[in-house]
Amino acid sequence: MNVDSQEITALVGREVYSNNGVFVGEVEDVRLDLGAEQVTGLALSGLNEELFQGNVEGDKGVMVPYRWVRAVGDVILINDIIERLRGPEEAEETLA
């Protein structure tokens, strides 16, 4: 993604979901590589507590690599890899 200040500011505040429809968090900031003029990551806050339970303390955020982004629209869709933070046994409990 080439850096366009209007596009970048439009990302801030957008909700982020996995491509399976699980809410991940909200974009608080954008990490840029100014030399390459590219967005390299999204700083998320307001995280889904269930998804990050035990992995992120308190009100800290996470940085999601921009390469995980699948689509940008009214919301941002990312690869479902973020859901794999839960252990396999926890995922099975969710399905039961």
Rank of each mutant, 00 (worst) to 15 (best):
N79R: 12
L77T: 07
V56T: 06
V62M: 05
T40D: 06
G73Q: 07
T9S: 12
A36Q: 07
F52I: 08
V3S: 02
G61F: 05
D80M: 00
V64C: 05
L95G: 07
I78L: 08
E83Y: 06
I81H: 07
E49I: 09
Y17T: 07
L85E: 08
L85W: 10
R84A: 10
Y17W: 14
V16P: 03
V22E: 12
E92P: 00
L44N: 11
R86N: 11
V75M: 09
F23Y: 15
E7Q: 14
N20R: 13
A10N: 15
D80G: 14
L32V: 09
G25A: 10
L42I: 03
L95Q: 13
V30D: 03
L44P: 04
I76W: 05
L77P: 04
R86D: 07
D59C: 00
S45E: 08
A71Q: 15
V72L: 01
K60Q: 13
S18C: 06
R31P: 00
E90T: 10
V56H: 02
S45D: 09
A43Y: 01
P65Q: 04
I78C: 07
E28K: 15
P65N: 07
E89Y: 09
T40E: 11
N55A: 13
L44G: 05
D59A: 11
F52V: 12
A10E: 14
I8Q: 01
A71M: 01
V62Q: 01
D4C: 05
D29Q: 08
A96E: 12
